[in-house]
């Protein structure tokens, strides 16, 4: 029987003086994952954008639970978004969106 895919939600903080569109952020994330793990590896991450606030420089992404560390490494390798110097840090990881926001509030 097929097992249900377990997911993890990652809260991200974008460390930059510039603001970016959600498309630019996702392009940077996909590009970093593709560079490190290739198309096969990237297909296993289940990466998706859940929430994005450009002004607050905050995003929530979803990944498959077995790919959390890979995505974390890919995120750490990002130095630029849309050719502008940037760093992205993982604030928190959680199993549900509700608990992620709860953890962030604490």
């Amino acid at each position: 029987m097929l097992k249900k895919e377990r997911r993890r939600y990652l809260a991200l903080e974008i460390d930059s003086e510039e603001t970016f569109s959600s498309k630019e952020l996702m392009n940077a994330l996909w590009s970093a994952v593709l560079k490190l793990y290739g198309e096969y590896g990237a297909s296993k991450t289940g990466l998706a954008l859940i929430d994005y606030n450009g002004e607050k420089r905050f995003a929530v992404i979803r990944v498959v639970h077995i790919a959390v560390e890979n995505v974390r490494a890919a995120i750490a390798s990002i130095t630029k978004i849309a050719e502008k110097p940037t760093a992205i840090h993982v604030l928190n990881v959680s199993g549900t969106i509700k608990s992620l926001y709860k953890k962030l509030k604490q």
Partner: peptide, 13 residues
Amino acid sequence: ELHMRKPRELAAL
């Protein structure tokens, strides 16, 4: 500064 990473991110790398 922009190349600094969290400890868990270093571990992930």
